[in-house]
Design a protein around this nucleic acid. Structure first.
Length: 272
DNA sequence: AGTACGCCCTGGCCGC
DNA sequence: TGCGGCCAGGGCGTAC
């Protein structure tokens, strides 16, 4: 499932192809894609003839800056953005629900088996407020005091890490991996974390996200980068989907519980 | 405020 | 081999 690192890898792949390029035409064939705002035809019209200025990322969202408006894309569980130069690379199939044809050459395809993803148009100056996502964990603004403030809550730490309104971009994989590296049990009450645990958690979050980007993402399920290639970070997972296997650090069997309706993996010895 | 649950969706997997 | 049933899971709405 695409989280911050996967979205960032795809963003970097796409940037040189789309930046400064004009959208010649757009087609959206799955109405569910625009369920949050607007209609397929409305989005197609808003994209027609527009030039892509910047391609930014906010949490798990792609933001294509078109000037006054922006195109926002979220991949959900199984969404993919795939770049294809004419006659080369990805060919659209039954799961391909949208495409943007760029002037000159190249087409950007949106493919999504489970249709949990979405795309919509927002006025550029209202994107930040409408998306309402929290601090970017890789930004300098994600200081220990900021995480400490977020942790002033009675909720358990893992569901808190998944709350996009608090911290942007962490999903199930990187939450479990960060908590393992910080040696914190996912069921701990956030407000019970000591200062040194908060510092360790902040460091662990940044380390796993940066490692995820460096290794081009985690290819659980059907994640692929913009060129259709899988990521390599899954080989470095210490707990995620490793339940029943031995902890790399202490040998204890990794456990799986359900927390906040999410499969949660941890080492009962290393994480306290 | 925190937590649970259902819903969306569909490939993959299990059991028979 | 085939088929019914169940599951995962990000995000959101609703209920307690």
């Amino acid at each position: 499932m695409p989280e911050l690192p996967e979205v960032e890898v795809i963003r970097r792949d796409l940037l040189p192809h789309v930046q400064g390029r004009r959208i010649q035409s757009a087609k959206i064939t799955e109405p569910r894609l625009t369920r949050r705002h607007g209609t397929p035809h409305g989005v197609e019209s808003a994209l027609f003839g527009r030039r892509v200025g910047a391609l930014r990322r906010r949490g798990k969202f792609f933001i294509f800056d078109l000037g006054q408006d922006s195109l926002v894309v979220r991949l959900g569980m199984t969404g993919q953005l795939l770049w294809s130069e004419d006659g080369d690379g990805f060919r659209p199939d039954q799961y391909t629900h949208a495409h943007l044809v760029f002037n000159g050459r190249g087409t950007l395809y949106y493919r999504d088996i489970r249709k949990f993803g979405e795309m919509f148009i927002l006025p550029t100056d209202s994107v930040e407020g409408t998306l309402g996502v929290g601090v970017e964990p890789l930004d300098p603004g994600f200081a220990p005091e900021v995480l400490a403030e977020i942790c002033q809550a009675a909720t358990r730490i893992k569901p808190l890490l998944l709350n996009q309104a608090k911290i942007a971009g962490i999903g199930n994989i990187y939450a479990d991996e960060a908590l393992f590296r910080a040696r914190i049990r996912p069921t701990r009450r956030a407000a019970s974390l000591r200062q040194e645990e908060i510092r360790a958690l902040r460091r662990a979050i940044r380390q796993v996200l940066e490692a995820g980007i460096r290794h081009r993402g985690s290819s659980i399920s059907n994640y692929r980068d913009a060129c259709g290639q899988p990521g390599r970070f899954v080989a470095l997972h210490r707990v995620y989907h490793r339940h029943g296997e031995s902890c790399f650090r202490c040998g204890t069997l990794i456990r799986r519980i359900v927390l906040g309706q999410r499969g949660t993996h941890f080492c009962p010895t290393c994480q306290r």
